[in-house]
Design a binder for these strands. Structure first.
Lengths: 230, 230
DNA sequence: CATCCCGTTAACAATTTGATAATACAATAT
DNA sequence: ATATTGTATTATCAAATTGTTAACGGGATG
């Protein structure tokens, strides 16, 4: 069951639990799935290890000596560097209040002990799958599909071919529908900071995109920039 | 009581379950949280409704007459339009095999019945939180919404288009409702220190804003400046 | 080598926005 | 009441910004 994660770099997981047995079981299971595992025996250690290794996922026991799991989650979520980090609680006591509070501190899941290793793995894989999908190279915006990998645009079923700059410009705008991209932002993202091109260059490319897509999905905000909307 | 983050448009949730009672309970709970809810009594209906409404989240009972939840998940995940859609299983039978298989078909979570409404809500919110990465600087002042990123003004539901200076002037005044901004302050903030424009310029822009918003939310303080109030 | 396509620019047209002046209005003080 | 001061409104013009088209050069392709 070596699964599909082979392309991206190895995921780092930090486990914090005060019961050595549990720590060991989980560590073993995750390692055999190819994850890089770190452990911590209490809340403070967890925070320390998290800072040291910047794990992709942190599994927190709720009840630990010193800082408990919820404290740790709160502390980590305060810091921007752990904003995107997946955090999952693992708890023996499963009263409604704790679970709700746990999730409200910004955790991504709340699991109850005892949990079968297989299920734990499935849940972890599901979380990673979801997060990786966000960074996926294929964007869907309504009827519009942008495939960065294949440099392909599909609109209402028909494929269209855009030139590279056109493609990247469209991909940028579509990456955040509704957001107005300033001309400078566009230049930096699509052309890079070194290259200097004339003012009308962006316009011309915008025009070509509008022409090819044959749909007014790009709106001009005069004096500000452009935005994409369907 | 929550629903702070519902600015970005209401989330749509589809629930598929063959037990009308469960359907009703969940529907009620989600609706009171401000979600737009659709229901389906079996797998085929679920697929149909999913295509019709493009929900953000689908809750699938595993055991349903006809196509079961896992079948539905498989079918939906085949289609690119449901690639990003959150899918959660809800199941009475919770053997390891089913749960693992459910998650492996591409679901985002697997919940066991019975589940308390509060916990269900927390889990759903956690999923949405993860998917909607960040929020931008959006100002809410009563019925007025100012979205700097999208350069958009919404007043009582209708969007309005303001020119750049008008937008920035309004944004400035609204940034501190009730505070009186001196004419000089306004000039410095909106026009900058270098540019020098006549006194009437501000008035004219204020007028245009009042006209477009069609509401006297900007009060003149004679001899001093302007302030924003709803 | 000829051809095609892309990225860029120049030139000009079209449009929108911003500023000013002239005038009207309102409040206050003389 | 009338003058004075400060703001509102409007029309007009200037300036800034964007849209469009055509053309040029370079690299890739056949």
């Amino acid at each position: 069951m070596r699964s599909e994660n082979s392309m991206s770099s190895v995921k780092k997981i930090l486990i914090a639990d005060d019961e050595p047995d549990i720590l060991e079981i989980i560590e073993f299971n995750l390692q055999s799935e190819g994850y890089e595992v770190f452990t911590a025996k209490n809340g403070d250690e967890a925070i320390e290890e998290a800072k040291k290794h910047q794990p992709d996922l942190i599994i927190l026991d709720v009840m630990m000596p010193g800082k408990n799991g919820i404290d740790v989650c709160n502390i980590l979520r305060m810091q921007p560097q752990f904003n995107e980090t997946l955090i999952v609680f693992l708890s023996a006591l499963s009263d409604e209040g704790t679970e709700v509070r746990g999730l409200e501190t910004g955790a991504d899941d709340f699991l109850n002990k005892p949990i079968s290793p297989k299920i734990l793995l499935s849940k972890i894989n599901a979380l990673f799958r979801r997060v990786n999908k966000e960074e996926s190279d294929i964007m869907h915006i309504g009827d519009l599909i942008i495939d960065r990998e294949k440099y392909l645009i599909k609109f209402q079923g028909n494929e269209m071919v855009l030139a590279r700059k056109e493609f990247e410009l469209l991909a940028l705008l579509a990456s955040k529908p509704g957001k107005v991209f300033l001309r400078n932002e566009i230049l930096n993202q699509v052309w890079g900071t070194e290259v200097i091109v004339g003012d009308r260059t962006i316009d011309v490319h915008i025009r070509k995109i509008r022409q090819k897509l044959n749909l007014d999905c790009i709106t001009t905000v005069k004096g500000v920039g452009y935005k994409f909307e369907l």
